[in-house]
Design a protein around this nucleic acid. Structure first.
Length: 590
RNA sequence: GCGGUUGUAGUCUAGCUCGGCAGGACAUCAGCUUCCCAAGCUGAGUACCCGGGUUCAAAUCCCGGCAACCGCACCA
């Protein structure tokens, strides 16, 4: 079918074209179709799964291998306590009211805010109180003036029961980050108790969206890549900053946004830090790396920007947040990653809720010497005098300010604590030298967090192109789901046998290959272009004579002639980016 | 969740107003033929979103559900 005919309708944008292609060729499709489907769930097919794996591999290459970040994998379900402690149970529950007349739904707290009640106050209110306040202010439906039903809470986390006991609530994680915080102590031990260090978790997350309607952009179950990077707030220096300090970050600043202006400010990483636009060096570093990741996925720098989040847009845990956005055909700017400075919020919350110490110990370069006056009860003397009350007296003494006790002893020879008079010989007062070698503190965290499915979608959209009326998916060569297609020019005269040999050899060399012998050679090239197969190797009658093959490039449709024996080395270098296509052999003029 | 639009093979779609054998294009598979950019011929398989109702007869009309798109709302 001609793509022109397909795109003559006004409704046909890239989103439609990609969804159609994705279904037809097996990149992805809506899940559970045989039962009518269920919104917000998606299945990745053979091509899509590979592409997604390659994208995630790219993320690992940039964020894990190069910096030495750890990785972990934990459960999707967590006991209720985890998300109560993290603040998600409170923040994912929105009070909503429904109009009895038109059934419109509104955020109850937003309605109260319009009546002059502060956001903080409205958020804290109980459901009952919210209902009373709505009534007191005579709030009616802004659409039709109808009355509201009593407010209810809508929880955007998936709730479940762990085991057969009803009281044991569990939640599907809405982000992968909490697993990392919860396991901090083990990870820190594994990291040989050194800061800074980071840990990445790529895995599924669940958010029970009210109405997920943008294909891969908003799903109820999706893949998230959360990287939590822990560092000492007193030593916030990023030792990798040199590698990225000249990288330009186009940022849409808060001050610009408040003027209702969409202009981005182009700042290098260095400038952004100097001007305190970005507070943390590590955060700036990760933002620069995120920009590079998207470039490697095929999104040019000019189609990317960072959006500084306004105070009320930020997550409950974040002190400074940026969204990395990519321009897409249908929706304009779409978030692909979030960069939050979470400070010590999460670890502190879990420490408080669990009672487990999650501080780390830092030794000072030079121990700090200090002199301290101590008052030690002399139990040998106190015991016989106070008998049963001796322990209580000792405890009271321990609480008393040492200097005050010492002064009293010197002046009056005794000290009165509560109703007891302590004699000088009943305590031991001395000056003790102590050496403070270090201190304990809660590490700070910066978090880059990627939506894997969104990375996948933008990679598809930016790969999508039309050449001579044919769809060509021009993936960057490092993420192409199939690297090499092998085609016998004819599937007879031994060409097919030879082609299978070549394919098998390349597969053993570690390449992702595909064999196709049906249809004319042109048709097979077209099919391969649509699947984003990077290179095509064609076995023809000359191959049988001189053991050379034709290699065809997906994007330029150029062809070169190369001996079979040179293929492994040349192709490895090509996919590593060390060779360009014309360097793969002798160019065939067509 | 509300309002609007919509749901027909693998994909895109005609037919629905006015009930009467569900048609096309592309894709797929097989055979012949051709062989370096979707050639041709012959043949094949595959569809009316689900459930109920009205009717001799339902893709078509009615009711309910599910799903998608657009708008509203929501999106830490």
């Amino acid at each position: 079918m001609s793509s022109e005919a397909k795109c003559s309708k006004p409704a046909c944008d890239k989103f439609v074209a990609i969804n159609e292609l994705a279904k037809r060729r097996g990149f992805f499709w809506p899940s559970f179709e045989i039962y009518g489907g269920s919104g917000g769930f998606v299945t990745y097919g053979p091509l899509g799964t590979r592409l997604k794996q390659n994208i995630e591999a790219k993320l690992r290459e940039l964020f894990v291998k190069k910096i030495g970040i750890y990785e972990m994998e934990s459960s999707v379900i967590a006991p209720g306590k985890v998300f109560e402690a993290s603040g998600h149970v409170d923040h994912f529950k929105e009070p909503m009211v429904e109009c009895q007349n038109c059934h419109g739904r509104f955020r109850a707290d937003h309605l109260l805010e319009e009546k002059g009640i502060s956001a903080a106050e409205a958020e804290k209110m109980s459901l009952e109180k919210t209902g009373q306040e709505l009534e007191r202010h005579g709030v009616v439906c802004p659409d039709c003036g109808g009355k509201f039903n009593p407010p209810t809470r809508y929880l955007t986390m998936f709730e479940t029961t762990i085991g057969p006991y009803q009281g044991s609530v569990g939640y599907g994680r809405p982000e992968a980050a909490q697993n990392i915080f919860v396991e901090f102590n083990r990870l820190y031990t594994t990291a040989r108790e050194r800061l800074p260090f980071g840990c990445l978790q790529i895995g599924h997350a669940l958010r029970n969206e009210i109405s997920p309607r943008q294909g891969l952009i908003r799903l109820r179950e999706f893949t998230i890549a959360d990287l939590e990077f822990f560092f000492d707030p007193e030593e916030p220096t990023c030792d990798k900053l040199k590698e990225v300090e000249d990288e330009v970050l186009p940022i849409l600043l808060c001050e610009t946004r408040l003027k209702e202006c969409q202009d981005t400010t182009e700042l290098t990483v260095r400038e952004a830090l100097d001007r305190k636009v970005i507070l943390s060096e590590w955060q700036a570093y990760f933002m620069a790396m995120a920009k590079r990741l998207l470039i490697e996925l095929g999104v040019p720098a000019s189609k990317q920007r960072f959006l500084e989040k306004l105070t009320w847009e930020k997550a409950h845990y974040s002190s400074q947040s940026f969204d990395q956005e990519v321009l897409v055909d249908r929706w304009g700017w779409v978030e692909v990653s979030g960069h939050a400075y979470r400070t010590d919020y999460d670890l502190a919350c879990h420490m408080k809720a669990s009672g487990v110490d999650m501080t780390v110990y830092k030794e000072y370069p030079n121990p700090i010497e200090s002199e301290e006056l101590t008052v030690k009860p002399n139990m040998a003397k106190l015991g016989p005098v106070y008998k049963g009350e001796a322990a209580k007296v000792a405890a009271l003494l321990a609480k008393a300010p040492a200097q005050e006790v010492a002064d009293a002893m010197q002046k009056q020879g005794s000290y009165i604590v509560d109703k007891y008079e302590i004699k000088a010989d009943q305590v031991d007062i001395r000056t003790q030298k102590t050496l403070v070698r270090g201190k304990r503190f809660v590490p700070h965290v910066v978090e880059p967090s990627f939506g894997s499915d969104r990375l996948f979608y933008v990679a598809l959209e930016y790969a999508y192109g039309i050449k001579d009326d044919r769809v060509v998916m021009s993936f960057p060569r490092s993420i192409a789901p199939i690297q090499v297609g092998v085609y016998p020019l004819m599937s007879k005269d031994g060409l097919d046998v030879k082609a299978k040999e070549v394919q098998s050899m390349l597969a053993c060399e570690g390449f992702m290959t595909e064999f196709d012998e049906t249809g004319s050679i042109g048709r097979r090239y077209a099919r391969a272009d649509e699947a984003g197969v990077q290179l095509g190797i064609t076995i023809d009658y000359d191959t049988l004579k001189d053991s050379t093959v034709t290699i065809r490039d997906r994007d330029s449709w150029q062809q070169v002639r190369t001996p079979i024996k040179d293929l492994p080395k040349l192709l490895h270098q090509f996919f590593e980016g060390k060779l360009n296509f014309p360097q793969l052999g002798i160019i065939i003029e067509t």
